[in-house]
Every structure is written in structure tokens, then in C-alpha cells.
């Protein structure tokens, strides 16, 4: 606080308008986004509550698929992409649910809204943390998949990585928005996968087709992959923007 008791008002006013407030808005918000993302990742790193569960769930999905479908009769390219993305989707649902269960424990959304940051930055921070979490699980599952199903992941590493990144961004964008929403409804644990997956169907189709194209040698498929990636990118942009704008209405009290 200020020492001279006769001018706290002017001093405070100067502090509020000068100092940190004078830095450009976008830098301030970008820093806030990073801090929120790092906060979530730091909590996960210390507790490892979420990642193991996600990993094992994805692994379980793959094992169930291997019994449910005949991988001997079909090539990996035919069944694998669908299986991979179902596994990633359900792991994602776990991530988004946990992300906001964590905030509920601390009343964190309100706590963060006490700070001079945009609600959109809150969204982006959570989104980034969820994205990183999903990418980590995907990075762990893929080599396992290569072993279990004799899939040549290494041969297609970069196109596969691009396909996975673009589509994971979309899932995380939608999942973060609905994660926040369903954290405050009854049966949110059930509503989250319903809402998230219903909305993400275009993205899921694109993810499977693109991943299939990566693993296949059919030129027609590969040509289509370009169009799918474009659509997925459009999906990402549209939904991240919509979520960024509407997030404040979702977390409002």
C-alpha cells in the first residue's frame, strides 16, 4: 500500500492505469493464457491423477477393438484409424471432465475471474492444457499401437503427426467448452461425451479419413486427405472462435 495517507487515491489510480495495465492487451492476455495452462500442467505433473487413467483407458479401448473386430482379416489401414480415434476421443472425454472437476474443487473459475483477465483467455489456457494432455497420451499410445498391430508408424511419422495435431486441436476446442458447461449440470459426466461427440462428428470423420490416408497407398484417399485437413482446420477455427466468445456466458455465475 502507499505510505502517504493523503494521496492513496491518486497513487492507486496511477497504479491501475499505468504500470502493468499499460502493457499491450494481447501480451497480457497471452501471458495469462500461458500461466493458466502451466498451472494445470503443473498440477497434473505433481499428482499424475489424469494421465495414467487416460492412457489405460485408451489402451483398453484398443484391446477391446482387437477382440471386437478381426484385425487378422483386415489391414491396419482399414480398421486402425477408426479404433485410434475412438480411443483418443474417450481419453479426451476423461481429460476434459477432469480439467473442470479440478476447478470445481478450488472454485478456480471464480478465483481466476477475480483477476483482470478476459474470460476468453481462461478458455484458451484450459484449452491449451487439455490439448497438451491429449497429445501426450496420443504420443504414448501410438508406439504401443505400432507394436500391437504391426503398424508402420515410423514410415508416416510427419503426415500422421500433422493429422493428429489438427484434429486434436478441434476435439480439445469443443471438449473444453462443453467440459466447463457440463461441470455445472447434473449428470455432467454423461452429458459431456454426448454433447462433445455429437458436435465433433465432422471432425471425427475427417480424423479417421485423414489417418487412413496416411497409412494407405491409394492415391484417391491421399488426394482426399487434403480436403479433409482443410475442413478440419476450418472446424478448428470456427469452434475455437465460437468457444472463445461464448465461454464467459458458460462460466458466469
Amino acid at each position: 500500500m502507499t505510505a502517504p495517507a493523503d494521496a492513496p487515491g491518486r497513487e492507486a489510480l496511477a497504479r491501475a492505469t499505468g504500470g502493468t495495465a499499460s502493457r499491450p492487451w494481447i501480451l497480457r492476455e497471452a501471458r495469462a493464457v500461458l500461466r493458466i495452462c502451466l498451472k494445470d500442467l503443473r498440477i497434473e505433473w505433481r499428482s499424475l491423477d489424469n494421465l495414467p487413467a487416460m492412457f489405460f483407458f485408451a489402451l483398453l479401448v484398443m484391446v477391446i477393438f482387437s477382440f471386437g473386430f478381426d484385425f487378422a482379416a483386415f489391414s491396419f489401414q482399414e480398421l486402425g484409424p477408426g479404433m485410434l480415434w475412438v480411443a483418443f476421443c474417450f481419453a479426451g472425454v476423461l481429460a476434459f471432465g477432469h480439467s473442470f472437476a479440478l476447478e470445481r474443487q478450488a472454485d478456480g473459475l471464480a478465483g481466476m475471474m477475480l483477476a483482470p483477465i478476459d474470460p476468453g483467455s481462461l478458455y484458451l489456457g484450459k484449452f491449451l492444457a487439455n490439448l497438451v494432455t491429449m497429445l501426450i497420451v496420443e504420443a504414448l499410445i501410438l508406439p504401443l499401437c505400432a507394436v500391437l498391430f504391426s503398424a508402420r508408424i515410423d514410415a508416416v511419422f510427419w503426415p500422421l503427426g500433422l493429422a493428429i495435431l489438427v484434429h486434436t486441436i478441434g476435439f480439445a476446442a469443443v471438449g473444453t467448452l462443453f467440459g466447463a458447461m457440463t461441470a455445472r449440470t447434473r449428470r455432467g459426466d454423461v452429458l459431456l461425451p454426448i454433447m462433445m461427440m455429437a458436435i465433433s462428428i465432422p471432425l471425427l470423420i475427417s480424423a479417421v479419413r485423414t489417418t487412413a490416408a496416411v497409412f494407405s497407398d491409394q492415391p484417391a484417399l491421399k488426394q482426399a486427405a487434403g480436403a479433409w485437413l482443410t475442413m478440419a482446420s476450418i472446424f478448428d477455427v470456427i469452434f475455437m472462435t465460437a468457444a472463445y466468445i461464448t465461454f464467459e456466458y458458460v462460466i458466469e455465475e
Binding site: 458447461m181 455445472r184 458436435i199 465432422p202 475427417s206 475442413m231 469452434f239 456466458y249 458458460v250
Partner: peptide, 30 residues
Amino acid sequence: YTDDPEQRARFAAVIGIVGFLDVPLVYWSV
């Protein structure tokens, strides 16, 4: 499944907006 009426209206509004934005993408991808 949302109990508070004001919150229900807000959530429904967001889903109404996001859902409709999805329509062209769904149609194109299918």
C-alpha cells in the same frame, strides 16, 4: 439437467449457437 433457470437459458443459448454453426460442417463432411 440444469437446475438454475438462468443458467439453463445461457447454456441452451450457447448450444443453440454452436450446434447451428456445426450444420454446414456436418453436411459437407457426411
